[in-house]
Design a protein around this nucleic acid. Structure first.
Lengths: 134, 134
DNA sequence: CTCTGTGCAAAGCGTTTGCAAACGA
DNA sequence: TCGTTTGCAAACGCTTTGCACAGAG
């Protein structure tokens, strides 16, 4: 069980029911795009505005509490910030999964060969999920 | 030396001066966003329209001649399609470099552990380029 | 009580579309 | 010549902004 109120406070964000709901949805669903979020929150707050979603998502990104994931051929999704991980996207049903991979040797390879100081790695695999593979 | 006219024909795209210029710019610069392209082409075609850039870029993507690269915290860039490779982005100067890495073990790891049929991998490293590292 | 967040409507911005004229094959 | 592309202007969709009111601390 997760305490979303405490979590918001830890990131210096005032607690409002709308914010709690956003965090709750993201915690439950893992990744959502703006529209998914809006539709979900509409059920709880019939008069919520898209502007509220945008303002809050942006505020949470600002506080490094949320993270935008850009996905080839799809809308960006947002997720709660956590340990570095990669993403698997099903090109058939759109499902997105996290996967933890050891990318250290890859990063080392890249930074060495091109002389870069790498501090972020974004990896997205596209393919078919188990269900859609059949 | 590259023959852009022949290249366009190979991809079933009618040859126009604007298209030749787009391919030429991308061939020369590697990666460009829409605005970069527009500004460059304006020099050669003072009355070119942004709509022309968009229509052509989209037509070329359709023919799998061009490829969109989505980059965290930056505009998408476009590149000529070629062998699979990853990208290094300098978060200070914005420079983008290609890098060829062996990602087969990573792909195998991901597909095995999550039971996905992976057919595309997008890897973007962010950091500081050699010049900006100093 | 004060400051921030919410919801609404309007504005903004990047991208797409429709159309007449120009152009490529 | 015929079908496609170009450039322009208008339309579109997503995101942001300004403002009055409501709510959090």
């Amino acid at each position: 069980m997760m305490n979303y109120t405490t979590l918001l406070k830890e990131y210096d964000l005032k607690v409002t029911p709308q914010r709690v709901a956003i965090v709750e949805e993201l915690y439950t669903n893992g990744h959502m795009n703006i529209d998914d979020l809006y539709k979900k929150l509409l059920a709880k707050f019939p008069s919520i505005s898209l502007a509220t979603i945008y303002k809050n998502v942006n505020a949470m990104i600002e506080k490094v509490f949320l993270n935008e994931v850009k996905i080839p051929n799809a809308k960006s999704v947002y997720e709660l910030v956590k340990d570095e991980h990669s993403h698997l996207v099903c090109s058939s049903c759109g499902k997105i999964e996290d996967i933890e991979l050891d990318v250290s040797s890859l990063v080392k390879q890249a930074s060495t060969s091109k002389n870069y100081t790498i501090n972020q790695t974004s990896i997205v695999f596209a393919g078919l999920c188990p269900a859609c593979s059949k």
